[in-house]
Amino acid sequence: MEKLLKELTAAYGPAGHEEEIREVIEEQVKDYVDSCYTDTLGNLIAVREGAGPRLMVAAHMDELGLMVTHVDENGFLRIARVGGVVPHILVGQRFVFSNGTAGTINHEKIDELKELEWSKLYLDIGCSSREEAAEKVNVGDVAVYDQEFKNLGQRYLGKSMDDRVGCAVLVETIKRLPRQLPQEVIFVFTVQEELGLRGARTAGYALEPSYAVAVDVTRVGDTPESLVMDVSLGKGPAVKIKDSSLITHHGVREIMFSLAEKNGVEYQREVLERGGTDAGSIQLTREGVPSGVLSIPCRYVHTPSEIVDKGDVENAVNLLEQLCLYPWKEV
């Protein structure tokens, strides 16, 4: 699991540019599923065939990034955010492009931290002219956090745990599932979640699932003077009740609770005040899809240093496996 998570978090794949991470995941799962394909927007769809209802399980492949909007004559790059990146955590951070070009963020002279706006930030890739920079990078290219994966003992530290940890949970589950399933299960590694739950929407429309479960990270309330939130790291995966994108379906939620209890999987109940997941999109496709969310508690979401707990990840796999084995009823 550690090796898998390390490989997945290391792969390049900002929202809208998921080619590399998609290849990595496809390589991992293709021998364990009946078919595997990529749709128009770039979602990777891995199908485990079966009779009966159709369960869609989604985790998003995309990560945050910075897009180059301008290259100046001295070779500095100006940038805009791709997804929910905030300026104040960027200064001094390293970023890397898909071709390996690396750089660091800094800012124009400012008097106070609150003046730190996007137009004041730039990315220095060590070039001294526009021409030199243009050999490495073009306007429109996107850079991602350059951070190494670390094992902290009981916890993992790294970039893009959101939502590569969810992808890892799906991959691991796919590998563990037995030959026979009580229904068709379609695993979807979605694109552009960070830009507004986009990939899940078109995949949800195309696949017409009977039920959907999204696997994503959630925030925690167990750090010093943090927001009020009843989810902690290390107390098991969380079953979402509400976030800004959806109120999860009662039926789906109850099945998740009861499977966790029956199988002795420690879990938490999640109410996330701000933030959304792919399930929010899927739930509203066509005439509505009963949807739930399995969340992996994660500290410092959207920063270059996100932390997840090994036990939580392991238990998320256990619970997702049970969800795939559970005989879902026809709607």
Partner: peptide
């Protein structure tokens, strides 16, 4: 020229997400 900005929206947003997705 390239649009040196990634804010603002256009009909492309709505069309790209219609049905099963459109390039």
């Amino acid at each position: 020229q390239f649009r040196g900005f990634n804010g603002g929206g256009t009909d492309a947003g709505a069309l790209s997400l219609s049905r099963a997705g459109v390039k």
